[in-house]
Amino acid sequence: MKVLAFGIVKEIMGGASVAVDANISVAALQASLEQQYPRLKQLSAFMIAVNGEYAGPDVIVKPGDEVAIIPPVSGG
């Protein structure tokens, strides 16, 4: 499945989306992304949103979900 990337994460990954395995927890997804893109570890933090809502570490990411990586926000 595809994960959306924004801001600095888009630059780290070199594109607006990246393919990942589905049916894993948000925590496992974050660990897998950090392994694939070590520069993510240099961020203050990054959250995962599932279907437009911030998702806790235990949420399972399923095929068909809209999943996004949310680096530290800086609007306003």
Partner: peptide, 11 residues
């Protein structure tokens, strides 16, 4: 709250 939660980024 907007500055903490809304997914907007600035470079």
């Amino acid at each position: 709250t907007l500055k903490k939660t809304v997914p907007i980024w600035k470079k």
